[in-house]
Design a binder for these strands. Structure first.
Length: 1144
RNA sequence: CGGGAUGUAGCUCAGCUGGUUAGAGCGCCACACUGAUAAUGUGGAGGUCGGAGGUUCAAGUCCUCCCAUCCCGACCA
């Protein structure tokens, strides 16, 4: 059996073949079975939603998941990988709505909920086969046979259990959330409904700057210094109707405010007001600052004087009098100044009036500060009773029937052309004003001396797409999880999680936790996990159901009590965990809504018609996928928390958060110990991929063309995966050409010669110490590499690992080791040296295959199998069944690695010199000179002398010990050492050193110390605090790099010239052989035109030429021999012909 | 508006705890090397390390502010 040799590298083809192999041999299954009794490494798969096709970004996150799972498997862990599907939620619903051509409000009318949900259930899985195909093609090993699916009855039962647990702990409660609400339609609108085109339209509002009178008490006393009038805080609003429900004022913590003595513009009464310094010019003209402090309403200039300045922080806590004291909030300590992080000085007064019921920010800041709310407006958009003359009025004119009627009339008039556009708009405004309660409110404020300014203001505002009326922000009933109650714990537990990158954990996620609000769990949709909460009509009795068994028990009670006719799930057998049994129960809507339970006091209870947030579904997967606690209690304990998860950064507030929140609240634990959050995949220009732009990369096409390995490798190595990836197929091509191409060539080289020599790794390992230095060097690097890959992957840094492997393969193995050791593989005896070379190269290739297996599973498999099939050295039939290599520290020889670096460095310097001298490498030269200032250099260079000499084609190296007069020395400070010692003198000393003469330097070297007088201070330096290097050797071709200096002797003697010519001839003959398509081992006869140029060379180097070209004979001929292939070649600027005849 | 990330050569990226000529690959130009190579070597062009301050003997690296791009979230009182 021979090592497979390849004509070309075809990664997509290898992909297919390896895939086939894995399938036929059940390799994934085997990799699991092999480790079954080992310690588990727990991985959680974040469930994708299969209602859309996967994109290239999914390849990114799945590569990360896969590679660490493979890595840990190879390290001996048992890594179960259960796939999952996220099946509920809005995207599916919207898709179904679109497909059926209906909207949310037509569900239950045009189509039954039952049928609608059937569509959802079907459609959500419509792309599963595409997803599975991607999973397989990209080599993502995950168990697709038994996935968890969030809509399945068992899964939902676990969710119910969790909800009841939370309820029992007082963490589930009903409250309010401020949501866009359409009073005309009587329904809340989702954010996506607000994003429908045309929803934002300009509306005209009456705005007012209201004056809130400060209460004089201990807290506010400091404000009243120098104040001889009432003191007011100014706040601007575009919705004066919310002023009746005001319960607080918000200032910015760092915003600066001024206290200004002035007059009420409407009443003329002297007042003192507070507003943001930045906004003062909006209200006060410069001339007012100088004007006499006298004012009558209607005067052009309002006089003003600044009395003081305060930050928002100083103002917080100050109390004020309620503006409209119709009603008081039931709870909380209202009418205070608080700090709001959303306050700005862009417009208004830099102070925001807070009506918690009608603004999300307002509600949040009120809750944080323990301030209650007033909701003096009904769901219809009408003031409630008990607010004086405003009771019963709509808060916006558009809601009034009269408004509709009258505007319609005007519109018709305009349509008939009876009025022009200007008249039309004017009339419309008039109607709006007539019905506008806000104007009345402003007027009332004006009369009461509580208004500072009023204006009409046009701005864009969301409208309800169904009724065309402006929306209202309104408190809507909702169920919450009291996450804020466990906030500190969540923050503490987060500190123990290893985030990659760390900034996402501390910053993005950490900050989010700090500013967390309670989790609004409820959704008013159809396709999702129903909230298992039943409530009596009066809302006083609540039952939360935590299992199907409990549900059925309660249903039976209800049937007994007569509130339900029969049990719809009577076939379900509690306690029977079989699939068949669970198929008998479905608690999705509408079925669950038909269940009416009975309260302990005998009242009927209806379900709260909410679904829960789909994020709860996925955040619950650690236990819900096991149907915990109903089944798998033991297993869950072993498989919680996860050792590792990975998803995109966009999941920070999604899956990462819900996993963390639920784990903290339910189990007081983290849900995952290590997490990698990858960045986005952008196109080659750094723009987001979108169908609209047409810059989307199709993962199937890409993998089909380049193979999954190349895509995976590229994604992991081009930049750290947590950075955004600019996905460029050119980069993928480069990866193939450079990394995979070089590796392939190295393998092919090995295979070619190993087959010729019949190497099968049959011999015993040649002991490490008996291997040539070169072999020990590459083995040292190899083991260093193993260590580095280990370290990087343990840190969850695949980029570093991949780059290290890549560097090793390209630079060290191929371009240095193989290149310089080629001769050992071809020709010659099959002796220990050769065997050592084969064994070493084999080991390197095999190890590289193992190291790269997690990242590039296909090609790694191919190389490994190609090698192992012949040698049978390992029993593992797949590279993925092997143990990940361990570094053999005894083979790491940093000294040797350093020496080789010197060789590479000096070779490169000499090559550079040759280039300057315009002397080809093929022309041998006599010697190089290396001045040795420190004896270590001689030692180092000597160790690798032969390598250097053969690499640069020079006969010998000479060390110059007595450098006096031969070289020019330069002395440099060791900044690190001296900087600390000298401090400020550093600069001067550096200067002084630069000015030292050659004699001074020699003297310094001889004496070992040197003193300077600088600014009257004496500084003594020792030799180890400076670095002495040679810079030049007059009369020689010299190159200096760091502490190495090399000079090249460029004299070409006749002898050297002949040798050069001989080498040229060898090259020409070899090229000709290649052209003639001869086999590597074919013997030949060679004839060369008899010219003076080559005569000497052939005389003295005939054996060398014959040896190199496998020529039986080498003859000079005066005329070509008929019938033998002939070629004109150029040697040293002369043209001559050569002929080759193959021998049989 | 808030939180986060990023900004180094035309492009993609390195640059560890601050230490003195700021690196690599790709691309471009030129020359060379090669019986494994789709490679490789050498040279060239290309950088005020996003900007401005500051700390320090010394800043790409630490601090402050600003700008640009991107992500997430909120929202306009």
């Amino acid at each position: 059996m021979k090592f497979a040799e390849y004509k070309q590298l075809n990664l997509p083809e290898i992909n297919k073949e390896v895939l086939k192999y894995w399938k036929e041999n059940n390799t994934f299954r085997k990799s699991l079975n092999l480790r079954e009794n080992n310690e588990p490494f727990v991985f959680y798969e974040g469930p994708p939603s299969a209602n859309g096709r996967p994109g290239i970004h999914h390849v990114l996150s799945r590569t990360i998941k896969d590679l660490f799972c493979r890595y840990k498997t190879m390290q001996g862990y048992y890594v179960e990988r259960k796939a999952g599907w996220d099946t509920h939620g809005l995207p599916v619903e919207l898709q179904v709505e679109k497909k059926l051509g209906i909207n949310k409000y037509e569900i239950g009318e045009k189509i039954s909920v039952e049928e609608y949900n059937r569509h959802c259930k079907h459609d959500v899985m419509q792309y599963t086969d595409v997803w599975e195909e991607l999973t397989e093609l990209m080599g993502y090993w995950v168990d697709l046979d038994d996935p968890y699916i969030t809509y399945e009855p068992k899964y939902i039962e676990s969710l119910w259990w969790a909800l009841k647990e939370l309820y029992k702990r007082g963490l589930l409660y009903k409250g309010y959330t401020i949501q866009p609400f359409s009073p005309a339609a009587g329904t809340a609108l989702s954010s996506h409904e607000l994003n429908l085109p045309g929803c934002y339209r300009d509306i005209k509002d009456v705005t007012g700057v209201a004056m809130f009178k400060v209460k004089r008490d201990d807290r506010s006393e400091f404000l009243f210094r120098d104040v001889d009038t009432d003191l007011y805080i100014l706040a601007w609003t575009t919705t004066p109707w919310t002023l009746l429900s005001n319960t607080a004022l918000a200032v910015g913590e760092k915003i600066v405010y001024q206290k200004i003595r002035t007059f009420n513009p409407y009443t003329g009464e002297p007042v003192t007001v507070i507003l943001a310094t930045d906004l003062v010019p909006d209200y006060f003209k410069p001339e007012g600052a100088e004007a006499e402090m006298k004012y009558n309403p209607g005067d052009k200039v309002l006089p003003w004087r600044v009395l003081g300045e305060y930050t928002g922080k100083e103002l917080s806590g100050v109390r004020y009098e309620q503006l409209f004291p119709y009603k008081q909030p039931d709870e909380g300590d209202a009418f205070r100044v608080v700090i709001g992080d959303f306050v700005s000085t862009d417009e208004g007064t830099g102070i925001v009036h807070i009506a918690p019921s009608f603004g999300a920010d307002d509600m949040r800041v009120a809750k944080q500060n323990g301030i209650g709310a007033l909701t003096l407006v009904s769901e219809r958009g009408k003031f409630v009773d008990g607010v004086g003359e405003f009771s019963g009025r709509f808060v916006r004119p558009e809601y009034e029937q009269g408004y509709d009627r009258e505007t319609k009339e005007i519109e018709e008039k305009y349509a008939r052309g009876e009025i022009n556009q200007r008249q039309y708009e004017k009339e419309k405004d008039k109607i709006a004003d007539k019905y506008n309660v806000n104007i009345d409110i402003v007027v009332k404020l004006k009369k009461e001396g509580k208004l500072f300014k009023s204006e009409k203001y046009t701005h864009s505002y969301p409208h309800c797409w169904r009724t065309d009326k402006p929306i209202l922000y309104y408190p809507i009933e909702a169920w919450f999880i009291r996450t804020t109650d466990r906030k500190e714990r969540m923050i503490a537990l987060n500190q123990t999680i290893n985030w990659q990158p760390p900034s996402t954990g501390q910053g993005r996620f950490g900050e989010w936790l700090k500013n967390m609000v309670d989790w609004n769990l409820s959704r008013t949709r159809y396709w999702g996990t129903p909230l298992p909460v039943w409530v009596t009509d009066d809302g006083k009795e609540v039952k939360v159901i935590g299992s199907y068994q409990e549900l059925i028990r309660e249903i039976e009670k209800a049937v007994e009590a007569g509130v339900m006719k029969e049990n719809p799930f009577k076939d379900f057998v509690p306690g029977d965990m079989s699939k068949e049994n669970y198929e008998k129960i479905d608690v999705h809507r509408p079925y669950v809504d038909r269940i009416v339970l009975v309260s302990d006091s005998g009242k009927p209870m209806k379900r709260e018609e909410f679904l829960i947030d789909v994020w709860f579904d996925s955040g619950a997967m650690p236990f819900a996928q096991q149907h915990y606690p109903f089944e798998n209690q033991e297993k869950f304990k072993r498989y919680f928390p996860a050792d590792f998860i990975a998803e995109g950064v966009d999941q920070t507030r999604g899956w990462f958060y819900t996993l963390h929140a639920l784990a903290t609240m339910l189990f007081d634990s983290v849900a995952y110990k290590n997490v990698v959050s990858n960045g986005l995949v952008l196109d080659a220009n750094g723009e987001k991929m979108s169908k609209r732009k047409g810059n989307v990369v199709d993962p199937f096409e890409a993998m089909d063309k380049y193979g999954a390995d190349a895509i995976r490798w590229y994604m992991m190595t081009v930049s750290p995966p947590w950075e955004n990836l600019k996905f460029d197929l050119k980069g993928v091509e480069e990866v193939i050409r450079k990394f995979f191409g070089t590796l392939y060539n190295t393998y092919n080289f090995f295979a070619l010669y190993a087959n010729i020599d019949g190497f099968k790794y049959a011999e015993k390992d040649i002991p490490y110490q008996q291997r040539p230095e070169f072999d020990r060097w590459i083995l040292s690097l190899l083991n260093s590499l193993i260590k580095e890959v280990h370290d990087s992957l343990d840190r969850y840094d695949p980029t570093h690992a991949g780059r290290a492997i890549q560097k090793f393969v390209i630079d060290d193995l191929s371009n240095w080791y193989v290149r310089l050791n080629r001769k050992r593989f071809w020709g010659g005896e099959y002796d220990n040296d050769k065997i050592s070379a084969y064994q070493t190269l084999y080991t390197a290739l095999e190890t590289v295959a193992m190291l790269m297996a997690p990242l590039a599973p296909f090609y790694a498999e191919r190389i490994y199998q190609d090698l192992n099939k012949v040698t049978g050295r390992r029993s593992g039939e797949s590279v993925h069944l092997l143990d990940f290599p361990h570094a053999d520290e005894s083979m790491i020889d940093k000294d040797l690695e350093g020496k080789m670096e010197v060789a590479q460095r000096i070779s490169s310097m000499v090559l550079s010199l040759r280039r300057q001298a315009k002397i080809k490498v093929r022309q041998p030269l006599a010697k190089i000179l290396i001045p040795v200032i420190d004896s270590k250099i001689e030692e180092q260079v000597n160790a690798v002398k032969d390598i250097i000499l053969s690499e640069v084609n020079v006969k010998e190296v000479e060390f110059i010990k007595d450098t006096t007069g031969v070289v020019v020395k330069k002395i440099k400070p060791d900044y690190k050492k001296l900087g600390r010692k000298l401090g400020k003198l550093m600069k001067n000393v550096a200067q002084a050193l630069a000015q030292m003469s050659q004699e001074d330097i020699n003297k310094f070297e001889a004496e070992g110390k040197w003193t300077f007088d600088i600014d009257g201070q004496t500084v003594e330096l020792s030799l180890d605090e400076v670095e002495i290097i040679t810079e030049d050797m007059p009369g020689w071709m010299v190159k200096t790099e760091g502490k190495y200096t090399v000079a090249l002797d460029v004299t070409i003697t006749d002898e050297l010239r002949n040798e050069g010519i001989a080498r040229e001839l060898v090259n020409r003959i070899q090229n000709f052989r290649k052209e003639l398509d001869l086999n590597l081992t074919d013997r030949i006869l060679v004839f060369v035109e008899n010219k003076p140029l080559v005569r000497g060379a052939i005389e003295s180097h005939a054996d060398y030429i014959k040896n190199q070209t496998l020529a039986r004979s080498l003859e000079l001929v005066d005329s070509p021999i008929d019938g033998y292939p002939k070629k004109d070649v150029e040697v040293y600027d002369e043209t001559l012909y050569i002929q080759i005849q193959k021998l049989n």
